[in-house]
Computed example of a mutant assay.
Amino acid sequence: MRVLHVITGLGSGGAEQQLAALARRFPAHGVECDVITLTNPGPVADRLRADGVRVGHLGMAGNRDLAVLPRLTRAVRRGRYDVVHTHLYRAGVYGRIAARAAGVRAVVATEHSLGEAQIEGRPLTAPTRGLYLATERLGHATVAVSTAVARRLRHWGVPAERLHVVPNGIEAERYRHGLSARRGVRARLGVAPDTFVVAGLGRLVGGKRFDVLVRAVAAVPGSLLVLIGDGPERRRLLRLATALGVAGRVRLLGDRSAEEVPALLAACDALVSPSRDETFGLAVLEGLAAGLPVLHASCPALEELAPTDAPGATRFDGGLSELTSALAAVARAGPVRLPQPRAVRHYDIGRAAERLTDIYRRTAAHVAAPAGGTR
């Protein structure tokens, strides 16, 4: 089966990393993948190519660059794909139109980041929602990364029979690092062996509320914060750290590859996810996979499991005072490495690839069947 994945960009975001991890496993299920990115063929493009995946770049100039549509349609038609699978909002809009224009028999989309009031970190406006729904009807299956996202889509009016929940997956083995890796990474970062290091992981946008984390770390003496990721909030977070007098205790490491992140987490003592509006909570699972105590304000992935499945995770209300107290308690307890919990094994990336392959096959078979039609 030939599948084309269309994605908005290939920077180091969660959706992009998920696509790369899935592409590595699809061949075991008889699925051959190509990838087209509308913009930004960043570090994940290099990772895909290293794994033998063909990656195309359409050079889209902006949201309203309609010239990309015929180029994408021609690329889809040339590839003779059985399935087109889109990822992220802009790729979903353009990719569904192009796939149907090219006559592809099965069009699938994954909704990675839909919150109550935002989509992919941006305000969720009425026109944005309207365009999403109009183009969603051109697809055959819509995948949500959590039941919370599926519930929102269903509330919008997406038919239940077109909705599928396939949670994000994690490559658990990548996060198993020993004491030598911890020491080595700390030495490279210039961090003393006994420093309490807190990790934040994700795109630096307002909805992630990393400003709250900066303030909490500032209130815990002797602690240091490393933020792994990049985004428009970078300068504001640096100004905040300077204003609080802790610029030397806040390290903004920028985007890092999927290979680098596990080693960086090995050098940390805790991970904090301060966002109150997560659609899945992959950073929380990455922290747990690395054996860290994790504090989180929202994590639908864990809310769908029993508390005993993630004993290293603690939920807080999102407020600064509670986070500061919780961080101080973790610091007092000293560094620990916890075993990977059942939650991490539950969200194995191989399981996600298997479920998506099944959706591809069932959707293609249904659309091809005379009674099924193509809507």
Score class of each variant (00 low, 15 high):
Gly245Gln: 13
Val149Met: 15
Gly248Ala: 15
Ala150Glu: 10
Ala369Glu: 13
Ala28His: 11
Ala67Trp: 10
Gly334Arg: 05
Ala368Met: 12
Ala20Glu: 01
Ala117Tyr: 14
Leu114Thr: 08
Leu244Gln: 11
Leu38Tyr: 01
Val330Asn: 07
Gly79Glu: 05
Ala313Trp: 10
His85Ala: 06
His366Ala: 13
Glu303Lys: 06
Val53Leu: 02
Gly190Val: 12
Pro123Cys: 11
Leu4Tyr: 00
Gln118Thr: 15
Ala263Val: 00
Ala106His: 04
Ala352Arg: 03
Arg100Glu: 03
Ala134Gln: 02
Leu131Ala: 11
Glu171Gln: 11
Arg362His: 04
Asp46Glu: 11
Ala126Phe: 12
Gln18His: 12
Gly11His: 06
His164Trp: 01
Ala283Lys: 04
Asp194Leu: 05
Val93Arg: 02
Ala371Thr: 14
Pro335Cys: 06
Leu292Asn: 04
Arg203Tyr: 08
Pro293Glu: 08
Val108Tyr: 04
Asn63His: 15
Gly222Tyr: 13
Ala160Ser: 15
Asp269Trp: 02
Val272Met: 06
Thr195Ser: 12
Val212Trp: 06
Asp194Ala: 14
Val330Met: 09
Val76Ala: 05
Gly95Trp: 01
Arg122Gln: 15
Glu260Asp: 14
Phe26Ile: 09
Pro159Gly: 04
Arg256Asp: 05
Ile36Pro: 00
Asn63Glu: 13
Ala199Asp: 14
Leu72Ala: 11
Ala160Asn: 10
Ser180Glu: 15
Ala219Glu: 13
Ala106Ser: 11
Ala98Gly: 08
Met1Leu: 01
Arg235Ser: 15
Leu133Met: 14
Ser12Glu: 03
Pro127Arg: 08
Arg315Asn: 06
Arg90Asn: 11
Ala331Gly: 05
Val166Asp: 01
Ala306His: 12
Leu225Ala: 08
Ala117Pro: 04
Phe196Gln: 12
Ala150Thr: 02
Gly202Gln: 09
Gly139Leu: 02
Ala328Arg: 09
Arg355Thr: 03
Glu16Ile: 02
Leu253Ile: 03
Thr147Gly: 07
Val158Asn: 05
Gly139Thr: 09
Val367Trp: 06
Ser325Gly: 10
Glu32Ile: 01
